[in-house]
Amino acid sequence: MNRDFAIECERLSRIYRSGSIPGRGRETPALTDLTMQVPKAVVFGLLGPNGAGKTTTIRILSTLLAPTSGSARVLGYDVVKQAKQVRERIGFILGGDRGLYGRLTGKQNVRYFGALNRLNPKTAKRRGDELLERVGLAAAADTLVEEYSRGMKQRLHIARGLLTDPEVIFMDEPTIGLDPMGAQELRQYIPELVGQGKTILLTTHYMLEADMLCDEIALIDHGRLVALGTPDEIKRNFSRLTIFEIVVNQTSETLTAELSNIDGVQHVETSAEGIFQKITIAVEAGVDARDQIQATIGAERVESLVVRDPTLEEAYVSILT
């Protein structure tokens, strides 16, 4: 156990079994040998396609699901053997419409979860009111949740998840359903929570959000860890891509096909850039295609050429395909 880590997973695996007839059941490995460590007071992104094992990981870490093998600790406490201690220190924020009581008001939902978590009623009331104010629901606090929009429900999830002032917060797609302003407000709030010493494990499908917020990222696919590092490390070390962004003043119908035929070029995309055209070319890392690209386009047509690391989204696609 290392006290510097908020979360530690050691060869964590989970297999779902379906069917009750012996020999006819189906086994689905949702997580296989996941080993990772999350330092305290950081935002740690858990990224991957649907069904990759992100939610399974969160369910295990929040004591809702037992691992099939391996171990996991939250703030040094084993999630299986010391589930009670883990629950006293975690909160989770879900995405979506479920997990709230539609027939209660926003304020009543928060109070109820305060009572469930054995908060002192005065503390629960004060903190609940503060959080509803913080997430912009003060005016709708006495409205039934079944009348809330999806974004309002998402804000209520956030208030509920933070009610117990948890040290570790699991956020499962927290900006899903939020309008751009709401999503931006949450993104601004997350560093504030980290500043208070909280550790956040975030899953999201918005790569820009992950790139902006996460100190470290684990990329998982089919239940296995495929990349782990800072966003920059992921982009540089794992993506195996270099991106050429070229602004040209003239293009031809066959240019995209010609560029695609160059050795090492994986993907070519064109878009309008004012009166010019922008060509984005993904090239395998280590392949020196610069001269061939310029020659194919024609030096006289090139207005600018920039070679850059891939974005997190480009890296994500490159790693997972």
Binding site: S62, T63, R87, I90, F92, R98, G99, R118, R160
Partner: peptide, 18 residues
Amino acid sequence: TFGTLSLIYASRSNRWVT
């Protein structure tokens, strides 16, 4: 059905009281 059972299971509540 409402998906709130997991919030009870992940809470600190005394299960007998709940």
